[in-house]
Every structure is written in C-alpha cells, then in structure tokens.
Design a protein around this nucleic acid. Structure first.
Lengths: 223, 223
DNA sequence: CTATATTAATAGTATTACTATCGTATGTGC
DNA sequence: GCACATACGATAGTAATACTATTAATATAG
C-alpha cells in the first residue's frame, strides 16, 4: 500500500461523466469529501459545493446527476479501496483466525492515516462512510440502484470477509449476517458514542468498539 | 395487554399540541402511520397527509412543528409501548435466561397482531420503526433533540434489557452495546433481506433473524 | 489553426417545508 | 343567552432545494 499508487475503478453506471477524467471532476470529489465531512450530507448542497470550487452548479451536474449519486459514488470508492486494503492485509498471514482478526480491525475502525497522494482524502472519506453511508442505500430507489451495481463493492467486501469466517468456522450458517452486523454495528456505535452515549459502553480506552466486535465474532464462532 | 387500554404518555417536548387531545390530532397520527408505511418517510409530506385527512396543512403544523418531529413522536410512542410489552412479558418469568430470550424476541420481531382499540395501528407502526427509525436520530440536530428527551424511551428500553443481560451474566462489560447492536441489527437485516439479500443469510424459515441474534447474545455471554 | 472537449454564465422551474393571518364553528360555564 | 375559549378551516406567501436548459467562452490536441 503506502505510496503505491493504485487505480480505483468505479462502475460507470455510478457517474454521468467520470470525475477522475478531468480537473474539475477531481475537484468535485475532493471538495465534496471535505464539505460532507464538515457539515453532514443533509446540509451539504451542490450550491455550496459550487461556491467552494468556484464553478457553476450546472458543471457539477455533468458528473453526477444528483447529490445522492455522488454519495453512492463515494461509498463505492471507499469499499473498492477497502477491498484492496483487505487483500493487502491478508497477504502473508497464514492463520485464518489472524486474518479474520485483521479484517475486523479494518472494518470497524475509521482510517487515521492518509497515505494517498491522490485527490481523495481517505481519512475524511472513511468518516463519511461511517456516519453517512446508511443514506446511500436507505432510500426508495434502492432496488433500482442495486440493479445498476451501486452496492457491488460493499457486497463484495462482505462476501470476502464472510469467506474468512467460513475458514475459521466452516459450519457457521450466517457469515453474511454476522459480518454486515459487525460493519453496520461499528458505524453506529461510533455515532452513538458521540451523540447517544447511553446506548453504548464505549470507554476512554482506544479501540473499545473493535474489541467488542472481535469478541462478539470469535465467541459466536467458538462452538 | 390484549384489550387492556393503556394510556401511552408522550413527553410534551415532542409535540406542539398533544395529538391525543383532539380528533384531528388522532387523525394526523393514524393517517400518517398509514402513509409513511405505504410510501416511506422521504416521500411522505404534510401536503399529502393534509389531502388524505382533508384538512389544511397549516392545521397539521399545530400539532407538529415539522415532519421530522412527527417521526420522533411516532418512534417515541413505539418505544414507550414496547417498554410496556417488555414489562408484561417479563412478569411471572423467573429465569433470567428465559426473560432475556423473550425480550430479544420482542426487540427483533415486527409486531404482527394489532390488539389495540386505539387509533394507533401497532403493526404498521412497528414496520415504520424497523425501516425508518434510523432517520429519527440520524440528523444534524440529534444533540438538541436528545437534550429535549426525544430518545428517552428508546434509551430506557436499551437500559432495561441491558439489566436483564447483567442478570444472566453479571460480568458482561458491554450490555448496552450488545443490545443496541441487536436492535439496530435486526432492523437492518430485515431491510437487507428485502433489498440487499446478499448481505444476509435470511432463509425461508420464520424467525431466522431472531434465531441469529438470540444465538449471538447467548454465545457472547457464555464464558 | 481548427475541431473538439471542457467549463462558465445565466436563467428558470417544480417542489418542499414551513409561516402568517384571519375567520368560523362548537361547545361549556355561569 | 352570553362571554369565551378551544378547535379547525381557508388562503396566501416565502426561502431554499434540487434540478434543467441554453448559450457562450476557453483550452488543448493534432
């Protein structure tokens, strides 16, 4: 990983014009990540983005047909990138238990170090995914967007980690439920810790969310 | 329970005028439950509600200052009512394990039988809570609304069941995380089963979600 | 230096989420 | 039978949002 410059390819169904193909497109991505992280997806508008990048709103619409399409693009980017992180972290780790443990770390912790030299700030992007990705699939158009492949990279990630679960415990009947519960749970617990702390038991100590979900998974798999 | 007519008292901070105190107010509640269940919260508007109940939009605003306030009211109603269900289900059950098992059923299954003689359709309301309650606390105003008590009944439910967890396993360090994970997880898995099935392992058999989360909890607590 | 891609500039629309004002109907206490 | 409050109706209007449409300017590539 590190400074290895890997190319994240996004399903063309998820944009009108590839933002990676022009300067304005890249500005749209990097500035929208900043703004959404800063003010939240609801408050974020293309109008505000257009002011921030000093380009008219209509130019943004050439890349994304809606602000929702932009969120879907961003989360899709994140999960594609996370698949690479998983593959990299798994390489040279023999023990399935160790592999699963490492995978759970990647899934339950927001990114803290931005190694990228690209226009995507992965630290902020992971914050967005943790707090806003729910909104990417929780709409009336899910089924349509799902058909167009909007959630392929998320589903692929869940599938990949589920396979590790099966290596650890071949008799596990619900590996997908387990992993999607862990991912979504970790996102929510972080949010609860910040806003509704009585719904969690998050402590001062670092990584209490990762610890909890790692315990949860391994105790579930231990028969 | 059954036809016992219990009065659900809602925190006055959560409405402008008590909808339970007038006919129009009760119509607002019962019709909004129908409409939100039917079309989803995003698509639902006070305009549509006003047409459905044949009253002007401005009359609805006398009861709720925003459509979001209405959703908060509805989910709050649900959790207050669910606390009663829990208390009722726990009575006369001695074993903490049995109590926890029963509580998990109540938390992970949508309601199927409407025993109520009131204007609140509990079957539809539970559907709304399962699919839309996320939106009640996932906003930029959470902290404000939390201070005003918007989520008290949800938090009380989590606390109550967490106490049962501690009866079963007094050494458990994260009872709140465990229960909020189960509640939110069950809601999401139901949604995934309907829209993104590859994220679940939900089968034909009835209650596979309840089975999974019950296993998850008891295996977590078994040391 | 011309064709092509790319962006700027401007304007406009339907809908949403709300606010404001005023008027009427209905019953209740005295 | 009258004061009076409560409840509801009717109408109008506003700021912001999420788009769409069109045309003109500019950069770049061959």
């Amino acid at each position: 990983m590190k400074n290895l410059h890997l190319q994240i390819e996004i399903n063309p169904e998820l944009y009108s014009k590839n933002p990676d193909s022009s300067e304005l497109g890249r500005k749209v991505i990097s500035k929208s990540i900043e703004l959404i992280d800063e003010m939240g997806f609801e408050v974020f508008t293309f109008k505000k983005l257009s002011l921030a990048i000093k380009s008219p709103e209509s130019s943004i619409y050439r890349y994304f047909e809606s602000k929702h399409a932009l969120l879907v693009y961003l989360t899709s980017w994140y999960w594609t990138w996370t698949e690479y992180r998983l593959v990299f972290a798994m390489s040279n780790v023999e023990s399935p238990e160790e592999r699963l443990k490492k995978a759970l770390e990647i899934l339950t912790q927001p990114v803290t170090i931005d190694n990228s030299i690209s226009y995507v700030n992965e630290v902020l992007l992971s914050e967005i995914v943790f707090s806003e990705s729910l909104k990417s699939y929780h709409t009336t158009k899910v089924d349509d967007e799902n058909k167009r492949g909007a959630f392929n990279s998320y589903k692929a990630t869940v599938r990949r980690v589920s396979e590790i679960v099966l290596e650890v415990s071949p008799t596990c009947q619900q590996p997908h439920m387990l992993i999607s519960t862990v991912i979504e749970g970790a996102h929510q617990q972080k949010y609860f810790a910040e806003h509704l702390p009585s719904l969690t038991d998050v402590t001062n100590e670092k990584n209490s969310i990762t610890t909890f979900y790692t315990d949860l998974v391994f105790r579930f798999l231990k028969t």
